[in-house]
Amino acid sequence: MKCDFCDKKATVFLTQLVEGQMKKVCLCESCAQDKGVTDPTGFSLADMLITGTPTSAILGAPIFSSKKRQSDEKKCPHCGFSADDLSRVRRFGCSECYDVFRSEMEMILPGMQIGMTHVGKVPRGHEEKHLHEEKIERLRSQLDAAIQSENYEAAARLRDELRQLETLFPGLSPS
């Protein structure tokens, strides 16, 4: 079996109960050392999982921001908040961080909240805006497809339709 962090042979296998779910990580000798897994007292799999990238979050990909990994550490493109910041302060940098770190967040939520989905107040006009957002999104991809297939007649029609929608909600146009 290979190490989850590099391609070396895994010799350390760690299983822990995180939020009521069994999580497993396989590590090679040096990665285990690197991440402090050999010291059971100072190690929590939850911390490791919380900062994992979404694709491999289940088996905790690089998390501890060792210097060599700093360059590819996940960051919010909007405010620069990093996965490392998140695991340190357990708070977010801006509203956009919730999109960037959605998978990390969904892992920590069950421990702190009763549910995973908001059922309370929705700001007035938000529903309507959301439907438009979805429609604009759909039209844009149709437009892209039309241009790709050189169907310029359809493209022109879609473009006009898009323009009309975007004038209704100017805030929704891509910045």
Binding site: R91, M112, Q113, H118, V122, R124, G171
Partner: peptide
């Protein structure tokens, strides 16, 4: 809250509700 929402662009997500600095306040923020 309603009056403020008319003039200020509050961060809101359909699934997570009102977005807050700390995830312990997500949803209603209440």
């Amino acid at each position: 809250d309603d009056a403020l929402q008319e003039q200020l662009p509050f961060a809101f997500d359909r699934k997570l509700g009102f977005l807050t600095t700390c995830p312990t306040n997500l949803g209603t923020g209440m």
